[in-house]
Amino acid sequence: MRTIHAGKITEEVSLLCMEACYDLPPDVLRAIKCAADSEKSPLGKNILNKLIDNAELATRERMPYCHDTGLAVVFVEMGQDVHVVGGSLHEAIQAGVRKGYKEGYLRKSVVGDPLIRENTGDNTPAVVHTEIVEGQSIKLTVIPKGGGSENMSSLKFLLPGDGVEGIKQFVLQTVQEAGGKACPPVVVGVGIGGTFDHVAYLAKKALLRDIGVYNPKPHLAHLEKELLPLINQSGIGPQGLGGVNTALWVAVESYATHITALPVAVNLQCHAARKKTTTI
């Protein structure tokens, strides 16, 4: 049994929020540079080059890459041999979000109630996904999730008979309907299987995977390899202004499902595909 103080968790979450917003992950920056090289649309190429300048400026000046510093989504992998002292795990995380968004000059983008719509003023509460795993450490990942791309995400129950073709059509349709609104080039997280709630979680979790890393299951890696060119042939391009780079990456995650069901969720992530992880 290892003891970890709640204050340590707060401190780490606070840093993750800031660093995620200032520093575009290296895999994403590399993908944008690659897109800028390959883009055939002059307008699109110009935009991608400006995004590279923007990323370098944000890192240098410790400024958010995107003004939409998002709703903080926190993934926690909690070792079952860890004992948190000095406060609750979830309170410690919320306190970290509060501290990071205040001290990091990040935008407060959360309304406390979806209908009353009053800003909470400190970007809490975060959405927290906790998984209990073996071991005696805590792995924390913060995704500051922007609204523009989240709003364009989609979930559907296909028929089992719709199969892979049905999935491909639904993913493509979601990206096409989003067009320039989701801030392409996007990262596409796809969840397949599970239940209504779990499939959306899988799609979000897919966004944690680094660009360039395929799903270890061969049939899912194959699907990822088919989906990326399919999406890029849509012509939507950077910012929806036309071009050959509509998606930087497609990541698919799956889970067992019911004999009657083929749930699919598509979670779109803008080019500000921010994520930052630490292990305590």
Binding site: C34, A35, D37, S38, K40, S41, L43, G179, G180, P229, N232, Q233, S234, G235, I236, G237, G240, L241, G242, G243, V244, N245
Partner: peptide, 17 residues
């Protein structure tokens, strides 16, 4: 948007170096 997107639809992305 309507003018530009059809110009690039169906084009394959060159493989990144």
């Amino acid at each position: 948007f309507q003018n530009e997107i059809p110009k690039y639809a169906g084009l394959d992305l060159p493989v990144c170096k």
